Simulated assay, not measured.
Amino acid sequence: MKIKILVAMIVLGTLCSFSNYDSIPAEYSVIKQTKPYEGETLIKKEDCATCHKIDKKVVGPSYLDIAKKYPMNDKNVKYLTEKITKGGSGVWGAIPMSAHTALKKEDAKKIAIYILSLNK
């Protein structure tokens, strides 16, 4: 009986080693390249705190509200990256978000990933 269990475990282990399992699903591919804390560091350097807080609405929505509204996926990271760099209005009310055109697109992406990572 012990030999059968041992053989079964070896076979199962071998089969698992050939699988293409990845701990992060494909739709989270942008996260693989970015650690959320990088975005948090960038937020502290920018003027984001003027209008946003983590857990309460100031001028704009809280980061937690944004994270709850937009699930973490490539589409939403791209959308928020564009919102951060180009600005916009109408989604969270009439007050527009100013454009951050001087911010590099990669940095805006890191900020978007950080914000979306807050939804746990």
Results as ranks from 00 to 15, higher is better:
residue 1 M to W: 10
residue 3 I to L: 15
residue 4 K to M: 05
residue 5 I to F: 11
residue 5 I to V: 12
residue 7 V to R: 04
residue 8 A to D: 05
residue 8 A to C: 05
residue 8 A to Q: 07
residue 10 I to D: 03
residue 11 V to I: 15
residue 12 L to R: 03
residue 13 G to F: 10
residue 15 L to F: 14
residue 16 C to I: 15
residue 16 C to S: 14
residue 17 S to N: 12
residue 18 F to Q: 10
residue 19 S to C: 04
residue 20 N to A: 03
residue 21 Y to V: 10
residue 23 S to W: 15
residue 23 S to D: 15
residue 23 S to M: 15
residue 25 P to K: 10
residue 26 A to K: 13
residue 26 A to W: 10
residue 26 A to V: 15
residue 29 S to K: 14
residue 30 V to S: 09
residue 33 Q to A: 12
residue 34 T to R: 14
residue 34 T to Y: 15
residue 36 P to N: 02
residue 36 P to R: 00
residue 37 Y to T: 06
residue 38 E to K: 09
residue 38 E to D: 02
residue 38 E to V: 10
residue 40 E to G: 00
residue 41 T to Y: 06
residue 41 T to D: 00
residue 42 L to I: 06
residue 42 L to S: 07
residue 42 L to C: 02
residue 42 L to P: 05
residue 42 L to N: 06
residue 43 I to H: 02
residue 47 D to L: 11
residue 47 D to K: 14
residue 47 D to E: 11
residue 47 D to P: 07
residue 48 C to K: 00
residue 49 A to W: 15
residue 51 C to K: 05
residue 51 C to Y: 01
residue 51 C to N: 06
residue 51 C to S: 04
residue 54 I to D: 05
residue 54 I to M: 05
residue 55 D to T: 01
residue 57 K to V: 02
residue 58 V to P: 08
residue 61 P to G: 05
residue 62 S to N: 03
residue 64 L to F: 08
residue 66 I to Y: 05
residue 66 I to Q: 03
residue 69 K to E: 00
residue 70 Y to K: 08
residue 72 M to I: 14
residue 72 M to Y: 14
residue 73 N to I: 07
residue 73 N to V: 09
residue 73 N to F: 08
residue 73 N to R: 04
residue 75 K to L: 11
residue 77 V to A: 06
residue 77 V to D: 02
residue 78 K to G: 03
residue 78 K to F: 03
residue 81 T to F: 00
residue 83 K to G: 02
residue 84 I to W: 04
residue 84 I to R: 02
residue 85 T to Q: 13
residue 85 T to G: 09
residue 86 K to P: 01
residue 86 K to N: 10
residue 87 G to P: 04
residue 88 G to S: 07
residue 88 G to R: 11
residue 89 S to V: 12
residue 91 V to I: 08
residue 92 W to K: 04
residue 92 W to M: 03
residue 96 P to Q: 11
residue 96 P to L: 03
residue 98 S to Q: 13
residue 98 S to T: 08
residue 99 A to I: 03
residue 100 H to M: 11
residue 101 T to I: 12
residue 103 L to W: 04
residue 107 D to N: 13
residue 108 A to W: 01
residue 109 K to A: 08
residue 109 K to Y: 06
residue 111 I to D: 01
residue 111 I to S: 03
residue 111 I to K: 06
residue 112 A to V: 09
residue 112 A to Q: 01
residue 112 A to M: 01
residue 113 I to N: 12
residue 115 I to A: 01
residue 118 L to K: 07
residue 119 N to H: 12
residue 120 K to N: 11
residue 120 K to L: 00
